[in-house]
Structure formats: C-alpha cells, structure tokens
Computed example of a mutant assay.
Amino acid sequence: MSNLIDIFISFSLSQLLLCTVLLLRRPTGHALSEKLFIALLLADAAYLIIPWVSADWARAILYPAQTMVPGLFWLFSYSLFDDHFRLRPWQLIPFIITVVFPTAATFADLGESQIGQLLWFQLPQFIEFVLLGWALKVILAHWQDDLLEQRRNLRIWFSAFIGFYIFALIAAQQLLFPSVEWLAIWQYAPAGVMLFLCNCVLLEFKQDVFYQQAPPVSQANTEIETEPNASKVERPQEQEEIPEEVLDAISQLMEGDKIYREMGLTIGQLAEKIEIQEYRLRRIINAGLGHRNFNDFLNRYRVQEACERLASKTEQDTAVLNIALDAGFRSLSSFNKAFKDSQGMTPTAYRKSQLN
C-alpha cells in the first residue's frame, strides 16, 4: 500500500511542478490572481508531502500550510472571476480561524474538552465549508455576464472539478470517513488528476484570463470617460473584424434609446434587439469596446447618467436613490458600489464636490 501512495504522490507532485513552471514562464510581473494560485499550489504541495515527512518540526510547518487550501481557493476564485476584487484586511480573519486555531490546538493539546473540540476544531471546519461554498457561489455568479468566453468555460471547469473535489475531500476526511485506511491512500489519486487537468487548462487558456490589460481605443466608446478601476482587455490581433454597423447599433441603443435603464437587461436581450448571435455580441463588446463583464458595460452608461444628474443644480434636491433607480440600478447598495469603483468616491461626496 505504501508503494501505491508513493506513486500517487509522485505523479501529483510532478503535475504540480509542471503547473508552477507554466505559470512562471512569463519573465514579467504576475497578476494577483496568479500569485494567489501559486500560493494555492504551495498549500497543495504541503498536503502532498506530509505523508513522506516524519520529523515533528517539518510537520509543524506543513500542517498549517495544507489547511490554507480552502481559504486560498476562496481568494483565488474571487480574484479570477470578480474584476473588482481587492484584498481586504478582514479577509485574514478566516485564515486565522481555519489555520491558527486547529494548529495551535493540535500542538498545545487544547482540544481535550468538548468545548475545546467545538472551538478549536469544529468551528474551523464549519468555516472551511463556508469558504468553499462562498467560492463556488463566486464562480457561478454572473456567469452569463462574463464576456471572456474562455473564462466562462473556466468557471464551469472550476466549479465542476476543483471546487467539488476540495469540498468532497474535506467532508470525507473530517466528517464521513475520518479514520478509514483506503481514504488515506486513494485521496492522492484525484489530486494528480486535478493537477493534470489544470495543466491542460493552462496550456489552452490565454493570458487575458489572468491578466487585465489596458482597453483599446474605439469610436463607439470615446465619449465615455475611462473609469480608473475598470477591468478591460486589449483587442487581440487575431480577433475577427468588428462590424461598424453593430457598433453603431450598440451606440444608438445605449446613448440614444438609453436601453441600459432597463433593470435586468441581459446580453441575450440586447443581442435580440441588434439581431446578432449572442456569442458574437460577447466578442464585440469584449474586443471592440474593451469590457470583460456585461454588467460593467451597462454600469458605465448608468454611472455616466448619474454623474450628470448629480452635478446638475436643478436636481440637487433629487434623492440619490431615485437617480440610481432611474439609471437602471436595482438597489442603492449596487449603485454605490459601481459608482465608487468608477469615480473613487460615493455619489453623495461626488455631488458635494460638483455643486461646491
């Protein structure tokens, strides 16, 4: 049986090494999502190496490293699929609970009582499941709004394989089969398969999945001021030509008909109005207008209208909520977030700065 474990772990480590090489092949700096993915790979490496390590000091280092997998998967999913992701101080709290609590309890024998078990072990386990569920929610959220075709496919791959594998492994280890011998051996086989599939993905997917680059200059969006924190991507040279009539139709619907005011407007509905296939419209908005997310594309027009109304003295008594709803936002909170991402300040602060 030990030989079987060695085979599984060796294969998984070889795939992990190849995965790291594929990520580090670029000589320039790396995006935040890529750095988090490398950290996730290091945590996976700790998980794989532990069966080969017998020294207490080494296991004291590797054990907390492997417990970082759920938290790092959560942060990586956020950074990859949320174009407005920023690391926040509060995000360290789940790491402290899921990593420090069980590690300290293991080496200090703090979990002997029932309360100790609940606080130092069961609470971190529960938070790990919350983080994994949160990560899967982020992966599947706004799938239809994603304008990067490869990233849309990546969402399915991540939710169907990696997220489910981590969730099932933790559930089997800690809840369903905590001391079963076959799990101690066969748990490493799926890890190698997951890493192999990950390498296939890294070889296939383009760099714009990880990297956010400057937007192209387009006639259809020169009238709208570039947002300081907007997430966009350059138009690839091999991309198909962008039909001018489609850009004109988009411009008319957005700037003339102000269709962005319709709450819940989907890219499918917009494609029907323009009479074009949905997948082509995704490529045009992404490559021709420089947007990675359809909702961000709509919010640019919505925020522009809100800016004009907030800066108008004739509407200084109009409630911010009314302006937000008129522009097409579903709620004041979503409006505040989109407005701050775009202008770097709240709508109220913007109104004061313009009127004063």
Rank of each mutant, 00 (worst) to 15 (best):
T103G: 08
A184P: 13
P70R: 01
V99G: 10
L183C: 13
T106I: 09
A46L: 02
I127R: 01
T346N: 04
A172I: 04
G288Y: 08
G268T: 12
H84Y: 12
L203G: 04
L119E: 08
K35C: 08
P51A: 12
I185R: 15
Q212G: 10
A249I: 02
S218D: 13
E245M: 10
I9M: 03
K232Q: 13
I242P: 14
L17H: 00
M263V: 12
L203C: 07
F167D: 02
P216S: 14
A327K: 06
A191Y: 08
T20F: 01
A31L: 01
F85I: 03
G163F: 05
L41Y: 06
V233S: 12
E34Y: 09
P178Q: 04
A214Q: 08
Y165I: 04
L119V: 14
L32M: 05
W186C: 02
W74D: 11
S79F: 08
E315S: 15
E128V: 04
S77K: 01
R155A: 01
D6P: 11
A319G: 15
A306M: 15
F167P: 06
M68A: 05
L22D: 02
A230R: 02
P27E: 04
S334K: 12
I267Y: 03
L289G: 15
L40T: 07
A135D: 03
L310E: 11
I49P: 09
G111V: 07
A31M: 10
L247V: 02
E245V: 12
P51L: 09
A46Q: 05
A189H: 13
I61N: 00
V130L: 15
D341R: 03
L332S: 06
T222D: 15
D6R: 13
L23T: 04
L136Q: 06
V233Y: 11
E234F: 10
R151F: 00
A58Y: 01
L176A: 06
C198P: 13
A160P: 08
L203I: 04
R25P: 11
A349V: 07
A168E: 03
L40E: 03
M263A: 14
K313P: 14
S54C: 09
A214K: 15
C307M: 15
G344T: 00
A319Y: 14
